[in-house]
């Protein structure tokens, strides 16, 4: 599944980062590399972008960009 389909409160592990060019490179640079644990905190009031927590910091990105990131959902405890 892709990152944009995770619901607020859910967590996952990054499998791969797709897309190309500046966006992909930027995502990698920001630490969205394979095996990174990522938590979806919330969705903006208008339904987009989303707020993520990873590597001890908060990152926001748009759903269309998050759709490039394949994740494995962490089974809910």
């Amino acid at each position: 599944m892709t990152l944009d389909t995770l619901k607020p409160g859910e967590s996952g592990t990054i499998i791969s980062v797709g897309g190309n060019g500046a966006l992909r490179r930027h995502l990698l640079d920001m630490g969205l590399t394979p095996k990174t644990k990522i938590h979806v905190r919330k969705v903006a009031p208008m339904g987009d972008p989303i707020e993520l927590f990873l590597r001890s910091y908060v990152l926001t990105l748009r759903k269309e960009d998050a759709a490039n990131i394949v994740v494995e959902k962490e089974s809910s405890k």
């Binding site: 500046a22 930027h26 995502l27 920001m30 908060v58 990152l59 926001t60 990105l61 960009d65």
Partner: peptide, 12 residues
């Protein structure tokens, strides 16, 4: 051109 992607940190 390429718009710079909106990938932004929300600082504490």
């Amino acid at each position: 051109g390429n718009p710079v992607p909106f990938v932004m940190e929300l600082p504490a």
